[in-house]
Structure formats: C-alpha cells, structure tokens
Amino acid sequence: MSAFDLSEDQQDCLQELINVAMGQASDQLARYLNTFVYLKVPSIEQVKSDQLFDSGHQNLEAIAVVSQGFFGYEGIRGEALLMYQPQDSHRLADLLGYEDDEMSFDEQIIDLSSILTTTFLNVFASQIDNQMSYSAPRLISANQGMVSEHLTQQAFNWDLALKVRISYQVTDYSFNCDMVLLIPEEAIINIKTVIDRILEDF
C-alpha cells in the first residue's frame, strides 16, 4: 500500500462526503434549472493516472472534455474534468434556460461544466470547513479524435485520480456525464489528513 492509497475507513468517509455533496448540489441544480433533476448515487473509484483513459471509454474520440482547476485551503487542490458524449448534449441550451441562438455548443458545455463542478465542490468544501477557488473552465477540445490524443500525450503529474461518475437525468430527456477529479499526490496526503481529522471527531 503506497502513501497515497486510502484505507477502508478513509474511503468510506470520502464516499459519504461526496454523496452528501452530490445530494445538495443536485438539489441546488434542480431549483436553478427549474426542472426535476435525478442523480444516482455517484460511483467513486480511484484510478491510477496512467489507467484513467484505458477503461470504460472505448469511444474516447467522441468525447468533449472541459477542464477546471480548483484550489482550497490546506493544500486541497486538483483539476476537474467533465467528459461528455456529444450525442447526449443536444438540447443543453433548453436545460440551461438559454435561447437556441444565444449560445454556441462549446459555451453550453462550458457553462454546464462550471455549474456542475462548482456547485458540487462548494458543498464538498463546506463539509470539510474549506473554501474553493476555481480557475476559468476550459474546453480542451470538442474536435473528434483530438481529445484522446491530447490526453494521452500529457505526461500526467497525477498519481491518483478520483473518478466520480455522475448520471444526470432530467424528466423529458437524460444525459450522462463523467466528472473526474484529478488530484496530485501532495493533495492526496492533504485530503487524507482532513479525512483523518473528521474520522477522529466522529
């Protein structure tokens, strides 16, 4: 077991924090989007950075990725990647409440990503008495074939990635998107410290 692996207790605690964060975030989202948003319990898995894009994404070419950095106190920081299958992304403008011609597709997924990431991480941060700041979200590439190329070319500085899969379902249509939180090694140690403190208090 490396210094970056989570113990079973730590893993459970993190899952709980994320579940609560997701629950509150989806509640806020539903009110903002003025529609019924149904979120499944997010699945969380730890992925080694070099395996991140190996499994579950046979169809990587078809994905648009939006990246947004986050950073809080106590060295909690990382990068959130939101991954979309383009076929799921029709009518996003409808969902977000914009007129059809008001926003390009790129802008829609950037907007949605930013909302998903920040609402989720804000709640997550407040649970651990922290506060997050965010960099501007960036579309890495929506061009088919470019994303996997881009991602595999990056020499990752990340040892462990926390992959949180969220499924969004809205009453009259549904789409899926994956939120992947990439957390560099020092930040993992910092998260473990925070989790340990919560476990002690418990």
Partner: peptide
C-alpha cells in the same frame, strides 16, 4: 451587453452562489 444572456448568467451566480465564467474563446 446581451441582456437576456447576461441576466441568465447572473441568475446562476445569485441562485447557486457560485462563480461563473465567460471566456474569450466563446465570446
């Protein structure tokens, strides 16, 4: 300013109490 767009953008900030962005690549 694109008024409707702008109001909708700000409403997300007000309602969700979270920050929002607009980048030059999109606008």
């Amino acid at each position: 300013l694109p008024r409707k767009w702008f109001e909708r953008k700000l409403s997300s900030v007000i309602q969700l109490k979270t920050q929002s962005f607009c980048g030059w690549e999109q606008r």
